[in-house]
């Protein structure tokens, strides 16, 4: 994805610059921006290191694990059909807490584990799309028609479970409370009050997340009826 975006930006810039006769400006911009990226990283390094240091303390002190337990009622509300002890719950909790605290590096691995666990949950529920098939890429297609008797479909057309949809929509609605990176960028570009956006950002995040919750709950209910 980024390959296409990056290439288009560079190519359009040079073509359009040739058209408007601004090649000199583009040269300067390219060189200045490269230097600017480094000075930005120096500011960011300080803020990110500070945040990660604090989070390491929070994690060692058991604060993050405690938070994960606190959101259990929320998980039960959002994912009522995941059994209590199922690993999917744990991964989802870790992912959500890491998101809330802005620990980008810790979100994705837990999130991917959560998706795998949700896929296993579907298999445990007997959803034919998720039942493990012996991986046999060469003859797979031919065998499915004979063995599954036409009811099962191959792994290529798995439908997302309701839990997966809810989990992803929640994730994309953004859960991060303190926008650490934005604060760092703002301070680098001379904001008189880099942290002024914290409360507005929390309010906006709550609104987008609430929208996500209402939508998912609505869909869940609709799903049961139909």
């Amino acid at each position: 994805m980024l390959n296409a975006i990056w290439a288009v930006m560079i190519l359009v810039a040079v073509l359009y610059g040739a058209f408007t006769g601004r090649m000199g400006d583009i040269t300067n911009a390219a060189l200045d921006s490269a230097g600017e990226a480094i000075s930005l990283c120096i500011t960011m390094a300080g803020v990110v290191a500070l945040w990660m240091g604090l989070m390491e303390i929070a994690s060692k002190a058991g604060l993050i694990q405690k938070l994960t337990r606190w959101i259990s009622p929320f998980l039960t509300f959002m994912f009522p059909k995941i059994p209590k002890g199922h690993p999917a719950r744990e991964y989802i909790a870790t992912n959500i807490i890491a998101n809330v605290l802005g620990l980008g590096w810790a979100c994705t691995p837990a999130g991917l584990k959560a998706m795998e666990a949700l896929a296993r949950l579907e298999a445990e529920r007997g959803n034919p799309e998720y039942l493990p098939e012996k991986p046999d890429p060469s003859a797979g297609k031919a065998k499915v028609t004979g063995a599954a008797g036409g009811t099962g479909s191959d792994a290529g057309s798995r439908r997302a479970s309701a839990e997966m949809c809810t989990f992803l929509i929640l994730n994309i609605s953004s859960l991060q409370l303190i926008p650490v990176n934005m604060i760092a960028y703002r301070s680098q570009y001379g904001s008189s009050d880099p942290t002024a956006i914290i409360v507005p950002a929390i309010v906006a995040t709550l609104i987008s997340t609430l929208t996500a919750i209402v939508y998912c709950k609505g869909k869940d209910r609709g799903g049961i009826r139909s």
Binding site: G111, L112, K113, M115, E116, L118, A119, A155, G156, S157, R158, R159, A160, M164, C165, F167, L168, I169, N171, I172, S173, S174, S208, T209, T211, A212, Y215, C216, K219
Partner: peptide, 20 residues
């Protein structure tokens, strides 16, 4: 995320995500 679960039919995820 969907790649991790090998899901191709994402149902209402996109609508919900765009709505949020």
């Amino acid at each position: 995320y969907f790649l991790a679960a090998k899901v191709t039919k994402t149902r209402y995820t996109l609508t919900g995500a765009l709505l949020a």
